[in-house]
C-alpha cells in the first residue's frame, strides 16, 4: 500500500496541479483538468528519476486511470 501512496504523492508533484485534487488509483485521467502534454512530461521525468524507468508518450497514451500509470512502475 505504501508503494501506492508514495506513487500518488510523486504523481501529484509531477502533474503540478493548480488546485488540490482528491485522487486514487481508480481516478480516470480524463477527469483531471491538468492531465495534458505538460503533465505527461512531468510523469516521464518522475519515472526516470524515481523509478529509473524510461516510459514513452505511447505508454502514457494507453493509460486510462492513474492506476494504469502506477502499473507501469511495476512492469519490467
Amino acid at each position: 500500500m505504501s508503494q501506492e501512496i508514495t506513487f500518488l504523492e510523486s504523481f501529484t508533484n509531477a502533474v503540478d496541479f493548480q488546485n488540490p485534487v482528491q485522487m486514487s488509483l481508480e481516478t480516470e485521467l480524463k477527469t483531471l483538468p491538468e492531465w495534458d502534454s505538460l503533465a505527461a512530461l512531468g510523469v516521464i521525468v518522475m519515472f526516470d528519476m524515481e523509478y529509473t524507468k524510461a516510459i514513452t508518450g505511447d505508454d502514457l497514451a494507453k493509460c486510462m486511470t492513474i492506476g494504469d500509470i502506477f502499473n507501469l512502475t511495476l512492469s519490467a
Binding site: 512530461l41 516521464i44 526516470d48 508518450g57
Partner: peptide, 12 residues
C-alpha cells in the same frame, strides 16, 4: 515537436 520523445532523449 514530440515532447515525450525529446524529454526522453535529453534526460537519458
Amino acid at each position: 515537436l514530440d515532447g515525450p520523445g525529446i524529454m526522453n532523449f535529453s534526460i537519458q
